[in-house]
Structures are given as structure tokens and as C-alpha cells.
């Protein structure tokens, strides 16, 4: 008798389970399919440029000679953006989560979130019309006093429309992303661990170093990677701010170019092999972003044992 009552199952509940697991599986597969589709499109469309004879590619020296300066330019802009944005974002997030009085904290958090809502073209216009002009005296000073460092070799750009300006604009754009994410992580630090540090005689800053930052480590890396994703892919702001040119080591001269801006500026008038070349550039950007994300994953999992998740 008991066996029959056990083998009977509630039909409706089981059906709900099946529908739900089916829906989640479909959603997961859809993501993979979209990713695969994009990759396939990029490879197929880029193929002509990759196999074309070198003299037919823009610049006349083949695809590799065309792509590597703008890859380096993209990375320079992204590195500048993250180098500026990461410490500021973590500082602001810590201030909001652990130092500011409650009223100020929520107001400040709101303002930071608003920064993310500004369209990138507005940032671009602000960078080109305002920041570039205001910052060019600084570039002149850098050229005069720090000119022996290749990064600050003069003569400085008169308009200020340099890769450094573009990097600063990108930094402002990725700041809200990193700040919001890290703030949420810092707020989730277990009270127990914070109190453990304080009870040992830690100051507030020492408590943050002992309990908050280690706990948030994986989250900080993820937040920075999301910011990096935006910095790598940002098109409009860079296209407006940067007066592009050949690859140059100096950050305060005009020159350099990023992949995204290169595609945006040239795509409307491109045809034939030129289109393939630009799509190939897009493929390279795709691969870079993928690589960056994989490295981030690796960094996060490397210390899994110590993550506090077990």
C-alpha cells in the first residue's frame, strides 16, 4: 500500500519543474547560440581581408600591419581609463559603504548612478569641446618638464585631442560601473568578519583591508572587467575626442586610434574588401574582449579555496 502512495506524484508540480528547467536550458542555449552566431559572422565576413594580398589592404602592407597599431591604441586607451577609474571607483565605493553618514551615502550613490545614464555621445562632446581645451596647458607642462619620458614627449597637441584625453573621458564613463558594483559588494561584507577585525583592535582602514577588500576581491575583478569591456568597446566618445593618427608612444600628441572608433569612422564609406577589413578588426576586438574575460575568470578561480564561499 505504501509503495503505491509513494509512486503517485503530483502532476502539476512536476510539470512546472519541467517547464522551468526547459526554459532556463533554452535561455542558456540561446546565449551560446548568439555568441556562436556573432563569432561565425565575424569570421566569415572577415575572411576575405585575412587572405587578401597585402597590397590590397589599407596601408598596402597587409592586415597585420594595419591592425596592430589600432590594437595597441585600443589597449592604451583602456589601460589609461582603468588606471584612473579603478582606484577612484574603489575609493568612492568604500566611502559610500563604510565612511559616509547614511544620508550622504545614498545621495552620493544616486549621483554616481546618474553618471552611467549620460549618453556616450554627450561624454564625447564634453571631452572634445571642453576637457581637451582645458587640459592642454597640462600637456604643455608635461612636455616641458617630463618630456624625457617617452610617454610625455613633446610637442604637445595644441588642441588637446590626444589619447590621454580620450582615456580620461573613458575613465569618467567606466567610473559609475565600477563604483556601483564594488559598492554593492562592499555592503555585503559579512558583519561577523568586520566585527572580528574591529575586535582585534583594527582601525576602520585596517578593518577594510582585513575583511572588506579580501571579501570583495572577486567582485572587484569582475567590476573592473566590466569597466574594461566598456572602455575597449566605447566608440562614440573616442571618435569625437581623439584626433587620430599613426601609432605613437607619446600620450600627449595627437595620434593613435582605437578599433571601435576606427570601425565607426570608416564603415559608412567602406565597400568591398574595406568592409571585410573593418569586420576583421571587429573580430580582433571580439577576441581581445573574450581573452580579457577569460583571464579575469582565471584570476577569480585561482584563489577559490580562500574565497569564503566554502
Amino acid at each position: 500500500m505504501t509503495t503505491t502512495s509513494l509512486t503517485k506524484s503530483r502532476g502539476a508540480g512536476r510539470a512546472g519543474d519541467k517547464v522551468f528547467s526547459g526554459a532556463t536550458l533554452a535561455a542558456g542555449c540561446l546565449i551560446l547560440a548568439v555568441l556562436f552566431g556573432v563569432a561565425l559572422f565575424l569570421v566569415v565576413q572577415a575572411f576575405p581581408a585575412l587572405v587578401a594580398s597585402p597590397d590590397k589592404i589599407q596601408g598596402g602592407q597587409g592586415f597585420f600591419a594595419y591592425i596592430w597599431p589600432i590594437v595597441v591604441g585600443t589597449l592604451i586607451a583602456a589601460v589609461i581609463a582603468l588606471a584612473i577609474a579603478t582606484p577612484v571607483a574603489i575609493g568612492v565605493a568604500l566611502f559610500i559603504s563604510h565612511f559616509a553618514p547614511r544620508g550622504l551615502a545614498s545621495g552620493l550613490g544616486y549621483v554616481i548612478d546618474l553618471l552611467a545614464a549620460i549618453p556616450s555621445v554627450v561624454y564625447g562632446a564634453w571631452g572634445a569641446a571642453f576637457l581637451a581645451k582645458e587640459i592642454s596647458p597640462l600637456y604643455n607642462w608635461l612636455a616641458d618638464n617630463m618630456g624625457w619620458v617617452p610617454l610625455f614627449q613633446g610637442p604637445a597637441s595644441a588642441t588637446g585631442k590626444t589619447i590621454l584625453t580620450a582615456g580620461i573621458v573613458l575613465a569618467v564613463m567606466v567610473l559609475p560601473i565600477i563604483t556601483s558594483l564594488t559598492r554593492e559588494i562592499f555592503l555585503q561584507t559579512p558583519k561577523l568578519h568586520e566585527e572580528a577585525a574591529l575586535a582585534l583592535g583594527a582601525t576602520r582602514w585596517e578593518m577594510i583591508r582585513m575583511a572588506v577588500l579580501p571579501f570583495g576581491r572577486a567582485g572587484i575583478v569582475s567590476a573592473v572587467m566590466l569597466g574594461l569591456g566598456r572602455a575597449l568597446g566605447e566608440t562614440m566618445a573616442v571618435a569625437l575626442v581623439l584626433s587620430s593618427g599613426a601609432l605613437t608612444a607619446s600620450l600627449i600628441q595627437s595620434g593613435n586610434q582605437t578599433i571601435a572608433a576606427e570601425i565607426a569612422l570608416n564603415f559608412p564609406e567602406a565597400s568591398g574588401l574595406k568592409v571585410s577589413t573593418l569586420i576583421a578588426a571587429g573580430l580582433v576586438l571580439f577576441v581581445i574582449t573574450l581573452g580579457v574575460n577569460m583571464i579575469a575568470r582565471w584570476i577569480i578561480t585561482r584563489h577559490k579555496e580562500f574565497s569564503g564561499a566554502n
Binding site: P190, L192, H193, E195, A196, A197, L198, A199, L200, G201, A202, M210, A211, P214, F215, R217, H303, F306, S307, G308, N310
Partner: peptide
């Protein structure tokens, strides 16, 4: 607090530190 230590209701070793580093934390 460095003179008057405290042990809490739920065990709270720092999860990101080794056993040795936990002892040395304070």
C-alpha cells in the same frame, strides 16, 4: 579593543586567510 579581546557567537575566522594568518591577524 586591542586590550580587551572578543570571541563571537558564530565562529568568524577570516575566510580569505590561512589558519596561520588568522592567528597572526591581530
Amino acid at each position: 579593543r586591542s586590550q580587551i579581546g572578543m570571541v563571537f557567537q558564530r565562529p568568524n575566522p577570516f575566510p580569505t586567510m590561512s589558519i596561520r594568518d588568522n592567528v597572526l591577524a591581530g
